[in-house]
Amino acid sequence: MGIVGNTVRSARFRRSRWVLTAILCVYLVYTLIPIFYVVTASTKTNADLFGTFGLWFSDDFHLRENLVDLFTIQDGIFLRWLGNTFFYALTSAIGAAFFALLAGYAFAKYDFAGKRLLFALVLGAVMIPQTALVIPLYLLFSKVGLLNTPLAVILPSLVFPPGVFLMRVYVEEAVSDEIIDAGRVDGAGELHILSGLTFRLLMPGLATVFILAFVAAWNNYFLPLVVMSTSDQFPVTVGLAIWYASATTGSGGNLLFTVVMAGSLVSILPVILAFLIMQRFWQGGLSAGSVKA
């Protein structure tokens, strides 16, 4: 199979394939170089970090010492940050996926007054960067006394408009109206139909929303920076940024850039792990056999 109108062997197909492959390779290198830099930098001593070539390892392999430093500096606060991030990201992602499922399902399968307007609002909300909402959120949380609590980070992350949009599209494709009607004739309530008959058909879509929300919450920096004030509530992003600032000014005593780099490396591993775990949900054909295609 080739691009329609081109056979695999045609000169045109091969030319366009080369061009596309080249473009993708440039993009791949662009993405991998910073990650590779993090990997090499976290294996070096602070002196080697500035004294050797950035994109290769130095002779003095210092990764173990950097990791020990990372988890012991300031009474091992890094582990606390990692735990915070994990907690914020997991609860946010579960909640965001849950609400996206309910909202997307309703948009896809029910008719109600104001549906078009509400969906337009959801699409509009996709366009608003979260950063723009941070100051109003700060004022709001300060009124209700939620500043410097986990809810200040989690609650805003539950609102995930792209997830609602994705789930609507996914539900429309994956769940036929007749299955819902069949459930109704069988006497099942709407929530029972969703949980008992259609939920498992929606796992790939739900897994996608979950991972997107998880990564967004994992990487969230500006919101926790503003609403969290004590070090024990920080997520990894904010903690590392503060360490980095200390290292830059040299005021942190033994805080070194290499420790910040090792922290960055450790903080991306769970996200990679999450992708690998969620991968098994991305399988097609779950609804095969239910309805005639």
Partner: peptide, 21 residues
């Protein structure tokens, strides 16, 4: 009354079987 309360059964064009069951 809702569909279940009418004590009818329906066979659908697409069969509409529950795929995971």
């Amino acid at each position: 009354r809702g569909p279940a309360e009418r004590a009818l059964s329906m066979v659908f064009q697409s069969y509409a079987l529950y795929p995971t069951k």
